[in-house]
Design a binder for these strands. Structure first.
Lengths: 225, 225
DNA sequence: GCCCGCCTACGTCATATGTCGTACTTCGCG
DNA sequence: CGCGAAGTACGACATATGACGTAGGCGGGC
C-alpha cells in the first residue's frame, strides 16, 4: 500500500494465454485505456519466457505486468509465473483463470503472483488488478479472497494439511493407480502406500480413494484432462 | 454443401459466454469482418433465450448464428442450444468450448449445434464456422473431427457403448459413491449395482472405479467442479 | 411368435481397500 | 540432548470391490 511505486505514465502489459480469443478480449480491454499499452502476447509459458529473455538481451523495455493464464498445455502458468518472477523480479505477474480452485490460488501466490483474476472479470477489475500489481499490491478476486479466508479459518485444513509425501500419494490416486502401483512408483512397500492412503483419507475426511481423486481434481492438484 | 442457402449480405451474430473477456475477444474477431454484425451478447443460457424471445416478439431480426459457450453456470450451453434450436429453428448455434471432450461434442451435435469450435480458434476458423452454419453446413474443429472419427471407428466404443443404466452408474461412480450408495440411489440391490459397475469397467477396459470416475470427468460426463 | 439386448439378481471366489495398533529411523528444532 | 513430525513398515482384521457364471422378466424388432 504505502510500499507503492508511483504509477508510470504508461503501463506496459503482456498477455499469456493459449486461447487466441482470450488474448483478443484482453487486448480489447486494455487498448481502451490510454495509460495501458499492450506490448506483446504469448500462447504458452515457454513462449512468454523466451520473449521476455529476448527483450531483455535486446535491451527492450519489459512489461510492467504479465497477465498469465494458469491452465495451459505444456508448462503450466504456475511454473511460468515462478520462472518469470525469479529471472525478472521487476515484472509483476497477475494470474488469470477460469475457475477459482483454492489450490491454484495458493500455488499462484506461492509463485509470487501479484494478483488473481477470474476470466469473467470486467474491464474495470482487470485494470484495477494491473494497477495494483504495478504499485506493488496484490489484487484478489473478491470471491476468491472470501474463499481463501474461509479456508484459512476452517478447522479442518484442506489439502494444506497433507504432508509432501501424502500429496504425492494423492496425485497418484488421482491418476487412478492402485496401492500396488503407487508402491512401485515410490519404491515403498504396498503396506506403506496403504498407510499413506489411509492417512490421506483420514485428513480429508473421506472414505474412499475415488472421493480423494475427485477432490484432488476439484482442488486443481492435478489437471482434469 | 449444395444444400446451401446463399450467404446474406450481412450475417448477424450473437455471443453467449459467461466470461466477459471471451465475449470481448469474439466481438473483436467479428467486428474486423465487415459482413459480420454482432447484434447482441448474453452471459448465460437463460439470458440468451430471454433475449431471443424478446427480439422475436418485438419483430426484430434474430441472429443468423449464435456462438454458444458450453461450460456455463446455471443452464449449460447444451441445454440452451437445444432450447434455441427448438424454438427458433432458423437460428444456427455454434458450440464453443475450451477443451474437446468427445462427450460434449456428441451432446452438442445431438442438440442440433451447427459447429464445434475450440477457444484457441483463430479468427479465420471462427469466420469459417459461422459461414458454414449460415449455409446449412456443420463446421468441426479438425482435431475434434479426427477424434470423433477415431472414436467412431474404434473397435471399443467409448462412453457411447454404455447403456443408459450404465451411464447412470458411471455418473454415480464419478460422484465418489460406493456400490451400496449406488444401489440405494437407484433402488436396486447392491449385487446388481456391482454387476453394472463390473460391466462398465469391462466396456471401458478399466480396472477400478477410480479410473472410471476420472474418465467420466475427462469425457465431460460430469462436471469436474 | 421368437430372439436379443437390457435390467435385474444371486453365488462364489480372489483380491483390493481401508482401519487400528505398533514400531523403527531420520531429521530438524528448541 | 530430547522430542515430535514425517516416512517407512508390519500384522490382523473387516469390508469393499471386481470377475465370472448363471438366470428370470420384459420389451422391441424381425
Amino acid at each position: 500500500m504505502s510500499n507503492g511505486t508511483t504509477l508510470p505514465e504508461v503501463i506496459r502489459v503482456m498477455v499469456v494465454d493459449d486461447h487466441a480469443i482470450v488474448r483478443r478480449g484482453l487486448l480489447a480491454y486494455i487498448s481502451t485505456i490510454p495509460t495501458f499499452n499492450m506490448i506483446g502476447e504469448a500462447a504458452s509459458g515457454e513462449q512468454a519466457i523466451a520473449l521476455l529473455n529476448e527483450w531483455h538481451t535486446l535491451g527492450r523495455p519489459l512489461p510492467h505486468v504479465v497477465l498469465m493464464d494458469l491452465q495451459m498445455p505444456g508448462m503450466g502458468g504456475i511454473a511460468a509465473t515462478e520462472a518469470i518472477t525469479r529471472t525478472h523480479p521487476d515484472v509483476k505477474v497477475v494470474a488469470l483463470t477460469s475457475f477459482g480452485e483454492a489450490e491454484r490460488v495458493h500455488a499462484a501466490l506461492a509463485a509470487d503472483a501479484a494478483g488473481y483474476l477470474l476470466k469473467d472479470a470486467d474491464p474495470e477489475e482487470v485494470a484495477m488488478a494491473i494497477r495494483a500489481a504495478v504499485t506493488g499490491g496484490v489484487h484478489l478476486n473478491p470471491t476468491i479472497a472470501r474463499r481463501l479466508t474461509r479456508r484459512m479459518t476452517a478447522p479442518t485444513g484442506g489439502l494444506t494439511s497433507l504432508t509432501v509425501r501424502e500429496r504425492e500419494i494423492l496425485i497418484l490416486i488421482a491418476e487412478g493407480r492402485s496401492n500396488r502401483d503407487i508402491a512401485g512408483r515410490l519404491t515403498i512397500s504396498e503396506r506403506t502406500a496403504r498407510t499413506h492412503v489411509s492417512n490421506v483419507l483420514a485428513k480429508l475426511q473421506l472414505t474412499s480413494r475415488t472421493q480423494a481423486a475427485l477432490l484432488a481434481i476439484r482442488e486443481g492438484l492435478v489437471p482434469p484432462g
